[in-house]
Each structure stands twice: as C-alpha cells, then as structure tokens.
Simulated scan of single mutants.
Amino acid sequence: MTRIVKAVGDRGVLIDCASLDEVLAVAAGLVESPPRGVIDIVPAARTVLVTVDPAVLPVDRVIDWARDTPERNPASVDTAEPLIVDVEYTGEDLADVARFLACSEREVVDRHTGTTWRVAFVGFAPGFGYLVADDARLTVPRRPSPRTSVPAGTVGLAGEFTGVYPRSSPGGWQIIGRTEVELWNPDAAEPALLRPGRVVRFREAI
C-alpha cells in the first residue's frame, strides 16, 4: 500500500500510518539518514511528523523522501543499554489489574519486570513516554473515571502501553507502582530521559 504523506504548511509533512507497528517501522527508517534540513521526526500513535527548515529543504522533496524511504526494524534504531527503572509495585490499581488479567498480583509484577519495553512516542506531558512491548500480556483498559491528580513517578498501564508520570497531573491509567527516577528536568542538557526508540526495563525495588 502506498504510504500517505501530506504537507503541513511549508515546514513539515505528516505521514498517516495504519497501525502503531507501522509508525515505529516508518520512523525507524526515517531517522537512519535524514537529509540536511530535517529538524525533527516525531512519531505518534498513528502518524509521523517530519519538520524541516524550508530554506534548506523544500517540502515537496521531503514528501518524496518520506514516501520512498524503506521501513526498518525499530529494535535497530537505539542500540544503547536499556534504561533500568526501579519500581515499588504498591499501586492502588494493582489488584484490579490482576483481576482483569485473571492472574495474581505477583504475576502482574513478574510480567511487567520480565518484559522489554520500548518508547513508541512521547506526549500528553513533557517527558511522558508511551512504552510498548512485543506481547500483549499486560493490555488493560483505562480507569472508568480518571483521577484528578496522579503523583510524579507513578507507573501505570493503559491499553497496550505502560508509562511513568513525569510530574503530578490528572490521569486515567491503572496505577501499579511508583519510581524515584526523574524523567523530566527542564534544566538538564537533555530535559527528557525518554525518547522514541529508547529501551526500558523495569526492576522491582528491594
């Protein structure tokens, strides 16, 4: 199927994808060797946005490049060591998650820590990464009623994703634990600890 690519003004193009898996594969292909003038490549749940400097790279050339660049395996993009996140699995929704998955709370923790997660995209709040895995053993619905305030460091599940709240905010994810890892520091050289493609492993805090 021909990849659907459309201009977004004179500073970018948007690629429509059929699935999150396609988003990850398309983004992996684009980041391998972007032409001069590409400023950023931003994956989302069903799209990939490419922003450019139009004085260097006209949008019509970006459209051709974005349409013709082959997909890649996302695992080949970020070869850095996995980020280890220590978690206290004492979340308020851990029992509900176990009941939904028809397993024990211990098994929920074992599944979460035994899975290799990858940041699919970031959004919702600065530093918030949507992490996915190769299997669906921890797919759960969001809470029917969101909480008005979820503390920074809260680890949750929603749909096929897991994530860590980088700061206090409202949220409807199923809370399974908390971590002390700081995911967002606006004063750091790289404020966000998570970036698309980053591999993350969760470890139970002792």
Score class of each variant (00 low, 15 high):
Val38Arg: 02
Glu88Asn: 08
Ser104Arg: 09
Val59Met: 00
Val62Leu: 12
Val8Asn: 14
Pro191Gly: 09
Asp64Ala: 15
Tyr89Lys: 02
Ala18Phe: 05
Thr115Ala: 07
Arg36Gly: 07
Leu83Met: 08
Arg198Ser: 11
Asp135Val: 09
Pro186Lys: 10
Asp135Leu: 08
Arg46Lys: 15
Val48Thr: 00
Arg111Met: 06
Pro43Lys: 02
Gln174Tyr: 11
Arg203Pro: 08
Val119Cys: 07
Arg198Trp: 01
Asp96Glu: 15
Val56Ala: 15
Val23Gln: 03
Ser76Asp: 15
Ala205Arg: 12
Ile15Gly: 03
Ile4Met: 12
Val56Ile: 14
Val85Ser: 06
Lys6Ala: 11
Thr115His: 07
Glu180Thr: 12
Leu193Ala: 04
Arg106Leu: 14
Asn73Trp: 07
Val13His: 02
Leu194Met: 04
Tyr165Ile: 11
Ala7Ile: 02
Gly129Pro: 05
Ile206Pro: 15
Arg72Asp: 06
Val109Trp: 04
Cys17Met: 13
Trp173Leu: 10
Glu81Tyr: 08
Arg67Lys: 09
Gly29Tyr: 05
Ala158Leu: 07
Thr139Ser: 14
Ala192Asn: 02
Ser19Tyr: 01
Ile15Pro: 00
Phe161Ile: 00
Val150Lys: 04
Cys103Leu: 14
Asp93Arg: 07
Asp40Thr: 03
Ser104Val: 09
Val59Leu: 02
Ala55Ile: 01
Asp10Phe: 02
Arg143Phe: 13
Val26Ala: 03
Leu94Ser: 07
Asp134Ile: 02
Leu94Ala: 10
Arg67Ser: 13
Trp184Cys: 08
Leu24Arg: 13
Pro126Ser: 07
Arg167Val: 05
Gly172Phe: 10
Ala102Pro: 03
Gly171Gln: 00
Val122Glu: 13
